[in-house]
Nucleic acid binder design. Structure first.
Length: 784
DNA sequence: GCAAGGTC
């Protein structure tokens, strides 16, 4: 029997051919430069096989002639206009090849990726092949990895194509087209009419573009609304003579800091009155800094943006080109776990040749290898991104992206860094303080992965029960710090977590909202931040003025589409049901938007931009007029924890912060400088603050203070460890004592590093409007 | 001149 097998892309076609043919195959060129036909015998199924492929979707959809032109119809008509689906103009050669091959085949076997899009592409292949062989029987090969045994199993036990999954994608395609085109034409024309001659180019609406813009605007609003708040904390230090001279050890107040001067003052008096401090406990333990997880597309883009300072889109392009040259594996993958049978050592061996990290690879070969950590994601189609060959003639972005991928792979194959941690607990005047020291014993993966930092901190010897007179006891103050605007890496992360776009398209959406000038770059040092333009701001503000059930600039609408697709896949709804329902909803929204578009045009940001010269709004170099003062330079790679203004945003940020607790607001709070800068003050000795203190109730007296860290909810904080890979992987932190169970659960946002000097105010605290978070009484943060 | 999703 002659079987025609069709994969989703050239790489898969080639690798599966290698496996099924055992390397014995003939190659034929096709009309497409990317597609090859491979012929071989497959005796296990008594078949003669031709293996070929497509390159993603074969078909594309657009409106018919009467609706395709912008001025051919009212945009509202696009919700019902006929949609024509045909072979994409760039895919004609691929379709012709399929039809020629299908004519001669007795069976068609679909080998597309095993996901919804793959099932849909499979249906497209069937449709095209049946034009020349209408009765050809169709089978579907199901495989979860390109591993010989699985591939043979898939070839010998094929299943049926899943019509429902293909239908779900059909529905998405039609919805995106109708909604995108209708809203884009409507709002472009409305703005052109309102600001004659001032609006150039399209003002597009897209179900992924707008939520992406929404994230940027939302963070911008938070930055703008920020009001710094003063807080107080007690600083305690001891100076000892050592062989190297004098050495000062700083102790951190267990209580962190307080927002009420009077209260801090009373406690401070107690500390001052104490004759000495006593070491209550010395804890010594082994500790680790975990090596990173295997690399996914999203992580590559985030790291590329953050570490290499290359935009997500360019990182992906570089990786794509490296892949085409055979230097790295397939760059679009959600998988962060390696198959147990993966041949690590031969790939490690290929890196030995590198002059820089080659010696490290040699060490791995010499017994330092350790199996990579296993992440939670597997797309069952591709392994994590890894180098497949050594490359030494690269330049520019490709060189840097390759180096990152190679180092990441070697880091994954090494051992965690090992350290030894000492914590000294001290009591003084009824208050607890602590100091932490770290000795890095074995750097291991850190030697090949310079993007992670872990530095030791020496601590002099302290003995349990020992007492000493502190050399410094100060009441210091600091201010909560402004959160930063979003970086591209932050935006990639937010979109990924909220299901806006896919790993392969997120970068394009971000590039698009910048190209459309809804969002502008704002450089701070070497970090690129994203700020809305007046156009982007006006659109979001404007639509927010209209009373939609669901905001156009929040992720909920996209999530609804996603849910509908799942319903179709499960058979609870048909494609027709979903199309009908969804289009009806959007029709209503469209009418509402169009009838109230004057509200969009009249939002202050549009009006003021128009008065001052509307061009300003569209000039890429011109930042939004009401740009807040620049955020302080980034003290660490990540901006301070996001702060939220409403419930939905609160939810995003819970998603954000649960995975990887953001660092505490840094600046003054996190690291009080040893010498007092003008922005910070300290009180030593007799108190010079507000004179007499108000009467405190019993609960406020220092003696009544429980000696454990409590979170905003008032419950004891839980000690947890950062699981997410990143600079802080493995680091202990204190979080809310009642962690959320369901995604929508409320939990308070208390956060504090367990191992760092003065923990600072949780970033969410200082914001005036804190939606639902009020369930954690704000006063609890201050209560002692 | 519109969308988002595959991929080259």
């Amino acid at each position: 029997m002659k079987i025609l097998c069709v994969a989703e892309k050239p790489s898969i076609s080639k690798s599966i051919t290698q496996i099924l043919s055992g390397g014995q195959f003939a190659t034929r060129a096709t009309g497409s430069q990317y597609v090859k036909n491979y012929d071989f015998a497959y005796p296990q199924a008594r078949a003669q096989v031709t293996f070929t492929c497509v390159a993603g979707h074969l078909l594309s959809s657009d409106f018919d002639e009467n609706h395709r032109k912008w001025n051919s119809c009212d945009p509202f008509a696009l919700f019902d206009a006929p949609v024509i689906t045909d072979v994409d103009k760039d895919k004609k050669a691929i379709a012709t090849n399929l039809q020629n091959e299908a004519r001669r085949a007795q069976q068609l076997m679909i080998w597309t990726d095993c996901d919804r899009e793959g099932e849909n592409i499979g249906a497209e292949i069937v449709k095209v092949c049946r034009k020349t062989n209408p009765a050809i029987p169709v089978k579907r090969a199901r495989f979860s990895a390109i591993i010989a045994q699985q591939i043979h199993n898939a070839a010998q036990h094929p299943v049926e194509l899943d019509r429902r999954q293909a239908d779900a994608v059909d529905a998405r395609i039609i919805l995106d087209l109708r909604i995108g085109a209708a809203f884009t034409r409507m709002q472009t024309k409305a703005l052109q009419n309102a600001f004659v001659g001032k609006v150039e180019g399209v003002v597009s609406y897209g179900p992924c573009q707008f939520p992406a813009l929404g994230f940027v605007v939302s963070r911008f609003e938070q930055v703008k609304a920020f009001v710094p708040e003063q807080f107080w904390y007690i600083y305690l230090a001891i100076t000892r003579q050592t062989s190297d001279g004098e050495e000062e050890t700083s102790f951190t107040w267990r209580r962190g800091h307080l927002f009420e001067f009077d209260v801090a003052h009373v406690i401070y008096e107690g500390v001052l009155e104490a004759e000495s401090a006593k070491v209550t406990k010395v804890t010594k333990k082994n500790t680790k800094k975990f090596k990173p997880y295997p690399l996914t597309t999203v992580e590559l883009q985030k790291a590329g943006s953050r570490i290499l300072k290359i935009t997500p889109k360019k990182v992906l392009e570089a990786a794509e080109h490296l892949y085409q040259q055979g230097f790295v594996s397939y760059p679009r993958t959600e998988t962060d776990q390696y198959d147990p049978q993966f041949d690590f050592m031969s790939l490690v061996g290929k890196q030995v040749a590198d002059p820089t990290w080659g010696p490290f690879a040699t060490q791995l070969q010499g017994g330092q290898f350790s199996a990579p950590r296993k992440g939670k994601n597997n797309d069952n189609a591709h392994p994590p991104i890894h180098p497949t060959a050594h490359a030494n003639n690269l330049v520019g972005d490709e060189k840097r992206v390759y180096e990152f991928i190679a180092r990441r792979f070697l880091a994954c194959c090494s051992k965690d860094a090992l350290g030894f941690e000492t914590t000294v607990d001290v009591e003084c005047g009824g208050e607890e303080f602590y100091a932490t020291g770290l000795i890095v014993l074995e750097r291991n993966y850190l030697d090949v992965y310079p993007y992670d930092k872990w530095t030791g901190k020496e601590l002099p010897d302290f003995e349990e029960g020992e007492t000493f007179v502190p050399s410094l006891r100060e009441l210091r103050d600091g201010q909560t710090s402004r959160p930063n605007l979003l970086t591209e890496a932050d935006l990639v992360g937010l979109m990924d977590k909220n299901g806006i776009g896919t790993d392969a398209t997120i970068a394009e959406h971000i590039a698009k909202i910048m190209e459309r000038e809804y969002v502008l770059e704002k450089m701070e040092g070497t970090t690129k931040y994203l700020a809305p333009s007046t156009l982007g701001m006006g659109l979001v503000d404007g639509y927010n003025e209209i009373d939609f059930d669901r905001s156009l600039s929040k992720p909920q609408l996209r999530r609804m589409t996603e849910r509908s697709m799942v319903e179709v896949c499960q058979g609870n709804k048909t494609k027709g049901d979903v199309l009908e329902e969804t289009i009806e909803q959007y029709r209503e929204m469209f009418v509402l938007a169009r009838n109230n578009f004057n509200r969009v045009i009249e939002v202050p940001v549009f009006i003021s931009s128009a008065r001052l010269g509307f061009e300003l709004m569209f000039a890429p170099a011109a930042p939004a007029r009401d740009m807040p003062p620049p955020p302080p330079p980034p003290p660490s790679a990540r901006p301070a924890a996001a702060v939220t203004l409403d419930e939905e945003e609160a939810m995003w940020d819970i998603v954000d912060s649960m995975d990887s607790p953001p660092p505490p607001t840094p600046q003054l709070a996190a690291r009080p400088p040893p010498k007092l800068p003008s922005t910070s003050s300290a009180i030593t000795g007799p108190i010079a603050g507000p004179s007499r203190l108000p009467t405190l109730n019993a609960a406020l007296r220092p003696e009544a203070v429980p000696d454990i860290v409590r979170c905003f909810c008032g419950r004891p904080a839980r000690q947890l460890v950062v699981k997410k890979e990143g600079p802080n992987t493995g680091r202990p932190f204190l979080g809310c004592g009642t962690p959320k169970v369901m995604p929508d659960d409320e939990s308070c946002t208390f956060f504090q590093w367990a191992d760092e000097p003065p923990p600072t105010v949780p970033a969410k605290r200082p914001y005036p409007a804190v939606g639902r978070r009020a369930t954690c009484p704000p006063s609890a943060a201050n209560a002692i």
